[in-house]
């Protein structure tokens, strides 16, 4: 099997904006995406290349963020691929089993690859969703930080 990580040279910067918006779309609330989609569905529409389908993905982590890699557990992921009538192909992988969410995330991914629409969608859909996600995350971090307990080891004696 070919190793997709074999190329360790400089990361391909051209794809990183797309990775970002795909991440935002995947983390967004399905119902919220649906509300946004109402503003764009009068366009050419899309054909589904791969119907939304659910499967399991192993989530891996590193102890402390930089330690040994370990398998954290499996999560349900739903994926979908669509093609706009204009030609752009969009993909989506979202956590959970919300088929509609996966389909719309793929549709937005395709729209965002259309140069004439990218800026509009970026500012009206992606930026607000990202902002909302960041606020929610900060909120959560704050709550967690408030309950943080620091453990100190006082003098143990046996050293020195």
């Amino acid at each position: 099997m070919p190793d997709i990580h074999a190329d360790n040279s400089a990361p391909n910067l051209a794809i990183s904006p797309r990775q970002r918006w795909m991440g935002v779309l995947a983390r967004a609330d399905g119902a919220e995406l649906e509300a946004h989609w109402a503003n764009y569905k009068q366009g050419g529409g899309y054909d589904v290349l791969r119907q939304p389908e659910s499967g399991l993905v192993m989530v891996r982590g590193r102890a402390g963020g930089n330690g040994q890699q370990f398998n954290l557990g499996e999560i349900t992921v739903t994926r979908c691929s669509v093609r706009l009538r204009e030609g752009a192909i969009g993909h989506a992988y979202v956590a959970g089993r919300n088929r509609q969410h996966a389909e719309l995330a793929a549709a937005f991914d395709a729209l965002l690859q259309t140069p004439s629409l990218r800026d509009v969608i970026e500012s009206l859909v992606i930026a607000p969703l990202e902002k909302k996600f960041q606020v929610a995350q900060e909120e959560r971090s704050k709550k967690a930080a408030a309950t943080k307990v620091n453990f100190f080891t006082m003098v143990r004696g046996e050293d020195e």
């Binding site: 054909d47 589904v48 093609r83 030609g87 690859q113």
Partner: peptide, 17 residues
């Protein structure tokens, strides 16, 4: 990104399983 070069993929089995 060159969208025109992307071949026109079509759907396979509609109801896979």
């Amino acid at each position: 990104m060159n969208l025109i070069m992307e071949p026109l993929l079509i759907e396979a089995f509609k109801d896979k399983v």
